[in-house]
Write a protein that binds this DNA or RNA. Sequence first.
DNA 1: TTGTAGGCGTTATCAG
DNA 2: CTGATAACGCCTACAA
Lengths: 372, 372
Amino acid sequence: MVASGTGAQGGRRRPTVADVAREAGVSVATAGRALGDYGRVGDALRDQVRAAAVRLGYSPNGVARSMRSGGTRTIGFVGVDISNPYFATAMRGICDVAREEGYEAILANSDDRMDVERAAVKVFLEKQIEGIVVAPNAVIDVAHLRRAQDLGVPVVLLDRHSGALDADSVVIDNERAAHEAVAHLLDLGHRRIGMLLYVDPDESPELVASDAGRPTVRGAARPSIDRIRGYLAALDEYGAQSSDLIRCSAIGDAAQFEKEADALLSLPQPPTAVFAADNVATQGLFMSVRRRGLAIPGDISLVGFDDLDWTTLVDPPLTVVAQSPMDMGRTAAQRLFARIKGDDSPSERIVLPTRLLLRSSAAEPPAGIRAD
Amino acid sequence: MVASGTGAQGGRRRPTVADVAREAGVSVATAGRALGDYGRVGDALRDQVRAAAVRLGYSPNGVARSMRSGGTRTIGFVGVDISNPYFATAMRGICDVAREEGYEAILANSDDRMDVERAAVKVFLEKQIEGIVVAPNAVIDVAHLRRAQDLGVPVVLLDRHSGALDADSVVIDNERAAHEAVAHLLDLGHRRIGMLLYVDPDESPELVASDAGRPTVRGAARPSIDRIRGYLAALDEYGAQSSDLIRCSAIGDAAQFEKEADALLSLPQPPTAVFAADNVATQGLFMSVRRRGLAIPGDISLVGFDDLDWTTLVDPPLTVVAQSPMDMGRTAAQRLFARIKGDDSPSERIVLPTRLLLRSSAAEPPAGIRAD
DNA sequence: TTGTAGGCGTTATCAG
DNA sequence: CTGATAACGCCTACAA
C-alpha cells in the first residue's frame, strides 16, 4: 500500500484467472468459464468464483485475450490534424460507430506528412488493430496501405479516393461542389472569380497548363485538384476568364491564407468574387477582406467551404459549400466494420452529398464592373 | 491472391519469428535477437535473418510483445466530446507528447455521462493501457479512477481537479478567471451583470443559497462552480446585485444557450452585460444578442470564454477569457509519462494561466442606466 | 460438470 | 555466439 496515490508504482501484479481459481478453490478452467460466461459451470461454483474475483479485484487481461483470439477490438484512424474541426468531427463519427460495435479507436495525426502517415500505419499494424480509416495525403503512394490489406487488415479511405488502391472510400464530389459554388457566382454576374485553396506539399504542385485553348489541371484525383477542375469547368461554361486568379498555399494556416488573399485582392484588376475551397482558406479569406475594410457582398462576394459554426456568426453569414464530416466518419467506420466482418464485395466509392448553403455573402457584383 | 483487394479476408497468417527463423535456417532465439536488436548475433546471421524477414514481410506482433513485457505503449484519453474544439485541441497536445514518447493514444467520448466514463475506463484497463488522461465529469465519484491507480495505472485529471482523488491535475484557476472577467465589466461601470453557463446534469444542480447576507455556492470545486464563485465574489466586492442573473443549462448546446440568453435578456430589468462562462454558452449568447438586434457593446456588453477563432471573426471581436487547451493536453500527458516512468513525488495540481483578452465587446454601459 | 494440457508470438534465461 | 526452453494470461480441445 505504499505510494498507491499517484499509482505509478503500485503495480502489484494484477490477479489472473489462476489467482481467482486458487482463491475460489477450483481449477483455472472452471474459473475461466465462470468469469467468461462460456461453457457449462455449476451455479454454486460460478457464484463462488465470481465472489473470489470480486474479492481480488480481478479484471480480464485484454492482451492475453487478444493473443489467443487474434482480435484486438481496436481500429485506427489516421487523420491529418485532430484540432481541425473537420477531422475532429469525423473522429467523433468513427468513435461512435466503433463503440456501437464494441471497439475502441486509436488516433494518429499525419500533419499531411507522408512519412508520419506511413509510420502511423506501421505502428497500427504492429498493434494488431483490426482495421484502418485513413485520410491519405497522397493518392499514388499507397504501398503502406496495400501492405495493410495484404495482412488482412481492411482499409477505408476518408475524404480522398485513390485509384491506385482497391479500397472503399468515403468522399464528396469535389468537382461538382466547386462547380456549383462557382456557377452560383457566375449566375450572379461575376466574371472575375478568384480561388483560394490548400494543396499538400508532398505531391508536386499541380500544373494549370493551358491545353487546347482551355486551361486544365493535371494530377491524380484528389480534393484540391478536383475542386480546381470544377472551378475551371464552370468558368469555361460561362466563357469567363480563368487565367491567374487561383492561389494555392502549401501551408494550411489561416494567416498564410490571409496573405494569399491579400495578394489576390491587391491585383490591378482584383476579382469581384472569391471561392475559398477549404475551411481554413475560408477563414483566411474572410480575415483579409475584413482587414481591408471591404463590404461583403457590396464590394466583394465570397463563397466558402465547410459549414462551420462561425460562418453563421459573422456578418454577413457566409454562403458555403457544406459537407458532413460526422456522416463521413460514421459511414467510413460502417464500411470498415462490414469488411472486418468479412464482407468481400467489390470496393465501393461512397459519395456523400454536399449542399451549397445560400446565405448572404454572395450577391451581384458592383454595377459597372460587369463589363469585362 | 484471392480477394486481396479490400483486405477483409486476405488474412493469411502473418509470418512470425519462427517462420523467419525457419526461412533463414536459424533458431527462433537467434532470429528474435537479430530482429529485435537485443543480445549478440553474428553479423552474417543477422543479415541472413533480416533478409528472410523482408522476404516474408515479417512485422512484429505487438500483442505478443505486450504479453511478455507487460507494456502496451498505449495511453487512453477520456474526453467529453472530441468534436468540441477544447477537447480536440487537448487531444492534439496529448497525441503529440505520446508520439514523442513512442506511445499511441486511444480516445473515448464520455458525453459527460458517468456510466460512459466508467465503461471507458474499464475497457482501457482491460486493454492494459499504461496511463489515463481524463476530464472527469464528476469530482466525487472517482472509484473507477482510484481502481486504475490501485492497478498501477497512473491517472491525470484534465480540466477538473478532484479533492477525492490523489492524482495530478491540470487545470486553470476558474474562480480567478471568472473574477477577472466580471471585475472588468464592473470596472466599466456595469452593475447588472448576467452569467450563462453549463452545469453537468449528473452532479446535482448547485444551490446559490443566501448565507450571511451574501450569496454563495455549495458543491465541490469544479469549473462551473468555481466560475460562479468568481462571479459572485467580484459582484460582492463592488457591492453589485447578484440575485437572479445566473442561468445554468444542463444541455451543452448552443441553441439551448440561446434560449437561456433570451430569457435573461427578456427580463423586465435586463442585465447591461453578460459573462458567458464556457465556449458553447458564448456562442449561444452571441446568437441571442444578434438575433435581438442589440448593438455590442452599445446596448449590451459581452465577455466570453475560450479564445476560439470565431471570436475574432465576428463583429465586434469578443473580449474573452483565454485558456490553452493544447498546453493543458501537453502538460497532462507530460505528467502522465513522468508517472509511467516511475515518478512517485506527491501529486501536483498544475494551474495553467488564463488571460482576459480585451477586445471590443465590453464597454461602458449606456448612459443613465448606471443608476441601479 | 469439472480438470488437465497445450498453444497463441515474443523475449529472457540458461546451456552448449 | 547460438540454440533449446520456459513464461506471460487466456481459452479450448480433450479427458475424466
